[in-house]
């Protein structure tokens, strides 16, 4: 018996070994290097200057002095939160309707939601450029019905539209997969025990779909807070985001400061995720 267990453990180790090596090379080592670069200067001596620079660097915008990176970070966070909220508000009802549709309809709709994801990210963003331009498709349509033209490209709205479009499926799919597994008997039980439609949603469906909501929010918030391409193309580069800052420093060959920004961003995201997880756990046992 003992021997067998030992044998089994050996097999398990052997099977897990490649994953161990993989995560070592592609997760642990890179993270270590990010931290290492963040806390060293160009001659690889220890310094906290990169981190302090993030908090103290200032520049002048329209005559006022601002903390450059804190401002950029705040802007990124704001746009990411707005996009995530829009994705959630639009995605949640769609996920719910989807999970209650017939099997056939579900398959078709899921495919429709996924198809844009098969297209290249850059092409999708360029497509939105042509749609949102002052002389673009949208304004053409608006002009025809006498509503336009509306200036969208180069505004925060355009950046948010781009983010919502690009990350929408990542919100729908996790919520949908949780909802599809929801036991319909629970909904019946809630109705039976006195819940009208709104109460069923509030007291049963929403709390039970919370794990899906959390992973959906995570999967939209993280890429949208660190995006740089969308803001460059749809924001006409006017909305410098934290992702742009990292990219800019990297391109300027200032790897150490780029690493410091990335590290700080990661810490903030980890704290956000931890808080959300705690909220979810607390909700799980009211």
């Amino acid at each position: 018996m003992r021997k067998e267990n030992k044998g089994l453990a050996a097999v398990r180790r052997a099977v897990l070994a490649p994953y161990g090596v993989w995560s070592m090379i592609f997760i642990v080592v890179p993270l270590f290097f990010v931290a290492y670069y963040a806390f060293t200067d160009s001659s690889f001596r220890f310094t906290t200057e990169n981190v302090t620079r993030f908090f103290t660097a200032t520049s002048t915008v329209g005559g006022a002095t601002v903390h450059t990176y804190l401002l950029i970070f705040w802007r990124s966070l704001k746009l990411a939160i707005i996009s995530t909220a829009i994705c959630l508000l639009l995605g949640y009802p769609i996920a719910y309707i989807l999970s209650r549709a017939s099997d056939r309809t579900q398959k078709i709709l899921i495919t429709l939601i996924m198809i844009p994801m098969w297209m290249n990210f850059l092409i999708r963003t360029y497509a939105w450029m042509t749609i949102l331009q002052d002389t673009g498709i949208l304004n053409g349509l608006l002009a025809k019905i006498g509503l336009g033209p509306v200036h969208i490209i180069g505004t925060e709205t355009a950046v948010v539209i781009g983010m919502v479009y690009d990350y929408f499926p990542y919100m729908i799919l996790p919520i949908y997969s949780v909802m599809a597994k929801l036991d319909m008997k629970l909904v019946e039980a809630a109705r039976d025990l006195g819940c009208n439609g709104w109460n069923v949603l509030r007291r049963v469906i929403f709390p039970l779909s919370l794990p899906g909501v959390i992973s959906g929010v995570t999967m939209v918030l993280i890429p949208s807070i660190s995006t740089f391409y969308i803001s460059q193309k749809l924001g006409n580069g006017k909305f410098y985001l934290i992702g742009d800052a990292i990219e800019g420093q990297y391109v300027a060959n200032n790897l150490h400061f780029a690493a410091a920004i990335a590290l700080l961003l990661m810490v903030v995201l980890l704290v956000c995720m931890a808080l959300m997880q705690r909220y979810a756990n607390k909700r799980a046992f009211v």
């Binding site: 036991d183 008997k185 629970l186 019946e188 039980a189 809630a190 109705r191 039976d192 025990l193 006195g194 819940c195 009208n196 109460n199 049963v204 709390p207 039970l208 919370l210 909700r283 799980a284 046992f285 009211v286």
Partner: peptide
């Protein structure tokens, strides 16, 4: 509708709320 009826059900597999 079910929620306005003065009858309650004990379901076959109980249907307790797991949360």
């Amino acid at each position: 509708p079910p929620h306005k009826r003065n009858v309650n059900t004990v379901f076959q597999r109980y249907a307790l709320f797991p949360h």
